[in-house]
Every structure is written in C-alpha cells, then in structure tokens.
C-alpha cells in the first residue's frame, strides 16, 4: 500500500504521461493531438513540482535557526517550462488554423490523402 499511496503523485504522473502520449500517437484530429501533447507536458510539470516538495517543509525564507524547507528551484524551473508549453501550444494551434485554410480539413488521414495526390 505504501508504494501506491506514498508515491501517489508519481503514479499520477505516469498515468497522465502515458494518456497524453497515447492521444498524440492515436488521435486523427490535429487539435486533439495538441491536447494530448498538452497532457503529456503537464505530467512533467507535476513530476517537477512533486520532487521539490518535502512533507513538513516550510517556504524557503532565511531565518535564524536551520529549518526543513521546500526546494523552490524545481518550481521556478517549471514556470519556464509552462511558458514554453504555452508557446508550443499556441504555435501548434496557429499552424492548425493555417492547415485548415490550406486543406479545408484538420483530419490527418484526409490531409494525408490530399498530399499524396499532390506528389503524384
């Protein structure tokens, strides 16, 4: 039981990661793929945030006597990664808009068959 609940966050990370990854691979719709990619990235955010946390740790403020504190660096790092994730998602969505204008569809198999005709 300890392995299930003691590492609860990490189990969530694994489940989310695999769900997102599966959606990226299997989805046919380009927007759904991006949603999957987002879930995949979010799982990594949780991984980083969980590993910085210590039970009973306080905020990292300089005080007289030494105390147990939560490491803020992973949290700060993940802020950067969240920004990167937003940039990726918005760029991906912008590309989907352009693809929709160019092909009239955002279903991968239809785009694929349209592209195949072009290369013949």
């Amino acid at each position: 039981m300890a392995t299930v609940f003691g590492y609860f966050n990490y189990w969530v990370v694994v489940v989310l990661m695999m769900t997102g990854f599966y959606v990226v691979i299997s989805a046919n719709n380009l927007v759904k793929k991006l949603v999957g990619l987002n879930v995949f990235q979010t799982s990594v955010f949780i991984l980083y945030i969980s590993m910085g946390k210590i039970f009973g740790g306080t905020a990292p403020i300089l005080v007289e006597q030494p105390v147990v504190y939560t490491n803020p660096i992973p949290h700060v790092l993940i802020l950067t990664a969240i920004v990167v994730g937003i940039a990726t998602t918005s760029l991906g969505l912008a590309l989907v808009v352009r693809i929709n204008e160019a092909y009239g569809t955002i279903e991968e198999d239809e785009i694929h068959s349209l592209s195949e005709e072009e290369s013949l």
């Binding site: 990226v24 380009l30 793929k33 990619l37 990726t88 760029l91 991906g92 590309l95 989907v96 352009r98 693809i99 160019a102 092909y103 785009i111 592209s115 072009e118």
Partner: peptide
C-alpha cells in the same frame, strides 16, 4: 502547403 503539415509534424 505541405510545408504547413511538415512544420506541424516537426512540432509534435
């Protein structure tokens, strides 16, 4: 126009 799908694929 295939540049767009290529860029999307690369992005993923």
């Amino acid at each position: 126009r295939r540049a767009l799908t290529a860029a999307y694929q690369y992005l993923i």
